[in-house]
Simulated assay, not measured.
Amino acid sequence: MATLKSSIERLQSRAIVALWRVLSGWRPVSLWRLARLIGPLVRRFSQRERQVTQINLRQAYPELTEPAHWRLVQDSLVHSSATMLELGFAWLGDARRVSDAIQEVHGRELLDDARRHDQGVIVLAPHFGNWEVLNFWLSSHFPFTAMYEPPKLAALDPIIRRGRERQGASLVPTNPRGVAALLKALKRTEAIGILPDQEPGWDSGVFAPFFGRQAYTATLLPKLVARTEARVVTGVARRLPGRGFSIHFLAADERVYDSDERTSAAGVNASVETAIALDPAQYQWEYKRYRKTPEEAEQRPDWKHFRLYR
């Protein structure tokens, strides 16, 4: 049985890599056109993605009319399809073509100013637009370190790792050794990347508001800030349909610097909300951001650790 499973995984990996290699040569405009064809199919046949997107968007934008809500659901699934199709381009495409696809960069002065003052920079990189293009740009311009967790299909690991490291990024594991590497990078006044919208384990987060609902949020950031006095910015690669990408760096909500973990987590979520406002359809709404609940936390013996931010 294990041998059969391994064989299936190898075939899946080969098919995925073959697709990435083919799409790596496509232009962003062609990938966007393909996404517009695939998006409606995802909406029709992928019940899980459609339902989670609907639920999350109703939570975030309750004021939307029903037609406006459905348009946003449709647009979101098209953008999510585009992100998946663009992976081969970001990881395997000609580096000059990827660089040329980045049409604009806004807010770079936030990073440059921090480094002029001998401060490291923590880039909050939510799942918005194409975060792999953001990684490409950051690692092309700054010494850049980010955490990396190998994919479930082990055969994809070397391809993804090479793609993310090809412009000089340093990938570190999602464990205490990786956290130590992030601290060292910040103390060298370099830049690091953190995904602020992934749910952490029960031992490394707190509940804080995200679009009006309590979301379990990682507390790594206040620990890093407290030990390094790093500056925090939000960074995204916004898709310009049919043209390429626009990089945006935004000043983080000031609460991220608070020593109280719950206050800092609220600032992190507020910073993500500000980035999403650039174009709500480009956020990855099909991710179950509210998977962990305060009610579930209260059933745990150590539930006081998970008190709500109020």
Rank of each mutant, 00 (worst) to 15 (best):
A251Q: 15
E109R: 09
N269R: 04
I276E: 03
Y61S: 07
E286W: 09
K304E: 13
K288M: 11
G107E: 07
V268I: 15
V17F: 13
V172M: 08
K288Q: 14
A60S: 11
G120D: 00
P67D: 10
Y257G: 07
F207Q: 01
V206R: 14
E66I: 06
V206A: 10
R43K: 11
W202H: 11
R310A: 15
R44Y: 04
E165R: 08
T3K: 15
D203R: 15
G193I: 03
L250F: 12
W26S: 11
G120I: 00
S81G: 09
G193K: 00
V256P: 00
V172N: 08
R21H: 09
R96P: 03
G39T: 04
H305T: 09
S30Y: 13
I247V: 10
M147G: 11
A114I: 06
L183P: 04
A18D: 07
H305P: 06
F211R: 11
Y290L: 13
A60N: 03
N56S: 05
W70R: 08
L85E: 05
T293V: 11
Q198C: 05
S46K: 05
A18N: 09
S170I: 12
A237L: 01
L186H: 01
W303V: 05
A15N: 10
G267S: 14
D118Y: 15
H79R: 06
H106Q: 12
T274C: 05
F142P: 01
V42H: 02
A154G: 10
H305F: 12
Q12I: 08
P200H: 12
A169L: 07
S139K: 03
I160R: 13
